[in-house]
Amino acid sequence: MSNIAGKSYAMNTISPLPWHKALVLKLLFFIARFRTTSFNGLLTLSLIHYARWAILRPGDFPHLDPSQPKEDLKYHYEFFFSNFNGSWDQYVDSFSSAIPGGLDLFWRGNVKYPKSVPFRPFHNYITFNQYWTSHYYNAYPMAASNDVKSAEHLRKELVDFTRKVEGASPEAFKEQYDQLLLSLQYDLSTMAPTPVVSLAAAAIDGRERPDAAC
């Protein structure tokens, strides 16, 4: 049981909201998709790889066979799944103080949602509605979202550079190389395994992989 895969944390929440509020929230999400500024704060925080919200009506729960009983629910449900860097405990403050308006939008109309400020009721609300992940896979445990984005920039620049300097004189090469370094000066930090996110997670890791524990 772990919400942690390297530098990424899997947040899962499932929370109820009345049908009419679900409709409004869906509409707001729909509008947000076409407003490029909606996610400025979240993009600037740059802690998230990928995240999603899915608002389900009772009839949206998959029904595959007559042997399976049909769900009969009073509420609609909002599913939220996120992959972000650092643990929830560590970064909840950052989310709550940077984008309180955004968070209030995401959970608008949910039953007993307390608003993102003050912080503790919000933290408690999320933890209360959280589901723990049984298997979490991350293709790059040693990379944060920032690292993946930086790496893509570096890769493109490097491929271009390699082509550009073919057959160049040493002096011309050096000049181009200095330019390359300048254009990559925000991309030269390297990656290693994540710092210990939680002592509980570190203890599990130590039990499962004594060889990898430092």
């Binding site: 400025n40 704060g41 103080s97």
Partner: peptide, 10 residues
Amino acid sequence: TGAFNTPGAL
């Protein structure tokens, strides 16, 4: 500028 609701949020 203005990305966060609170300046100095982090």
